[in-house]
């Protein structure tokens, strides 16, 4: 069966969506990622959507679900690389994707996850800004 590959890299899970996903494939990815977070103990998930030409309400909801499920499993999700035209359309569609952290590209997304992990390692949620 067709599947979107999930890579593990320096303690994070990395997904790059390179195909025009039909709905079952999106649901499969949601299930696979949730299971991989649990089995791998990864603390961060990075989803690269720079190749996606559209994000409709179904894919938007999948991204929001992944972010919510990963949070429950003590991992953080960052969605990176959204095309400007996709962002414009998503907002006009009425989807604000609350609870989904985003970054412009993979580098910034990685930096965000690393910063969260570093902050988490101190054992305090409220790390003072120095």
């Amino acid at each position: 069966m067709e599947r979107i590959p999930i890579l593990k890299m320096s303690g994070f899970l990395l997904v790059s969506i390179q195909v025009d996903m039909h709905d079952q494939l999106a649901m499969q990815l949601q299930d696979d990622l949730t299971n991989r977070i649990a089995t791998s103990g990864a603390r961060g998930v990075l989803i690269d959507i720079s190749a996606l030409e559209i994000v409709d309400s179904f894919i938007g909801r999948m991204l929001a679900n992944i972010a919510a499920m990963s949070r429950v499993l003590d991992a953080e999700t960052v969605v990176v690389g959204m095309q400007p035209a996709v962002a414009i359309t998503l907002v006009e569609l009425g989807m604000s994707m609350p609870g989904v952290r985003t970054a412009l590209d993979v580098d910034r997304g990685m930096a965000l996850l690393n910063a969260s992990r570093a902050a988490g390692d101190t054992g305090h949620d409220d790390v003072p800004v120095s």
Binding site: I54, F58, T89
Partner: peptide, 17 residues
């Protein structure tokens, strides 16, 4: 334009579903 393409494709996706 790219934005107009994206809008009509997204609308089509919603209505098809």
């Amino acid at each position: 334009s790219l934005v107009d393409q994206t809008k009509i494709i997204t609308a089509a996706s919603e209505l098809a579903r």
